[in-house]
Amino acid sequence: MNNLWSAILIMAIFASCNTNEENNVESESKLTNTNEETINNTSEQNYVSIDNDEALMATALLAAPEANRANCKVIGYNMAGEFVTYREGTNEFIVLTDDPKKSGFNAACYHKSLEPFMARGRELKSEGKSGAEIFDIREEEVKSGKLSMGEPGATLHIYYGDSERYDPKTTQVENAIYRYVVYLPFATSESTGLPEAPIASNHPWIMNPGTHRAHIMISPINNSKKK
C-alpha cells in the first residue's frame, strides 16, 4: 500500500511540473509575440509621408555618396510644384529631389558634367515631348555637337522605391534601393565587352548600345530590404 501511495505522489508531482513548464512556455511565447508586435508597430510608426521641402531635400541626398552629401548642389521640385534650387554646391555632384506629384519615390545624383544633358531632357519634357521624341532630339543634338553628354564615364546614382514614406530620424526611405548608370556615349557590347542584357540581377550590362545614351547598368542586390 505504501508503495502505491508513493507511486501516486510521484505521478502527481511529475504532472504538476509538466503543467508548469507548459504554462511557462506559453507565457514566454505570448511575451515574445507581444514584443515582436511592439517592435513592428514602433518601426511602422517611425515612417511618415514625405510632405515638406525639408524632407524632400533630406531624402534626395541619400542618392549621393555619403562622403559627398554635405557639399552637393540640390535641385528639383518643391511641394508647391516649382522647380527650384534648394542650395548651391561646391563639389562634382548634383542631387535631384523626388517629384512629390508622382507616386512612389525617385531621387537621383549625377556628375555635374551631365547637367546640360539632364536639363535638356527636363526642358523637352516640359514642352510635352514624349520619351521617344526626347531620345531622338538629344541623339541628333549630341551627334551634331550641340549638346554635351558630359565626361565619358560620368555616373548617375538613382535611389528609388514604391514607398513615399521615410523615417525622419534616419531619413531612410522605406524599402528604397539603388541603381547606378555609367554613361559611355555610343559604346557597344563589342567596344566594352559587356552583354546587352544582365546575366544575373546584380551583373553590369550595356543599355542603348551604339547611341548617345549608351550606358552601363548596375543594380546591386538589396540585402537589407525589409519584407
Rank of each mutant, 00 (worst) to 15 (best):
A12E: 08
I13Y: 02
I13H: 02
S16V: 11
V25E: 12
S27R: 15
S27G: 01
K30G: 07
T32C: 02
E36C: 03
T38S: 15
N41G: 15
N41Y: 07
S43W: 14
E44M: 09
Q45I: 07
S49M: 09
N52R: 08
D53P: 04
M57Q: 15
A64I: 05
E66V: 13
A67D: 11
A67F: 04
R69T: 07
N71Y: 08
K73D: 00
N78V: 03
N78G: 07
G81N: 08
T85V: 15
R87W: 01
T90W: 03
N91Q: 06
N91T: 06
S103K: 13
N106V: 00
A107S: 14
A108L: 15
A108H: 07
F117I: 02
R122Y: 14
S126T: 05
E140Q: 15
E141I: 00
S144Q: 06
E151H: 04
G153E: 05
A154Y: 01
A154Q: 01
I158L: 15
D162R: 09
E164T: 13
D167S: 09
V173I: 06
A176W: 00
I177W: 03
Y180E: 02
Y180P: 00
Y180K: 08
V181N: 07
V182R: 11
L184H: 04
A187Q: 05
N202P: 00
I206C: 06
N208H: 10
H212Q: 07
H212L: 02
H212K: 02
A214S: 14
H215L: 03
I216M: 15
I221T: 10
N222Q: 07
N222P: 01
K227A: 11
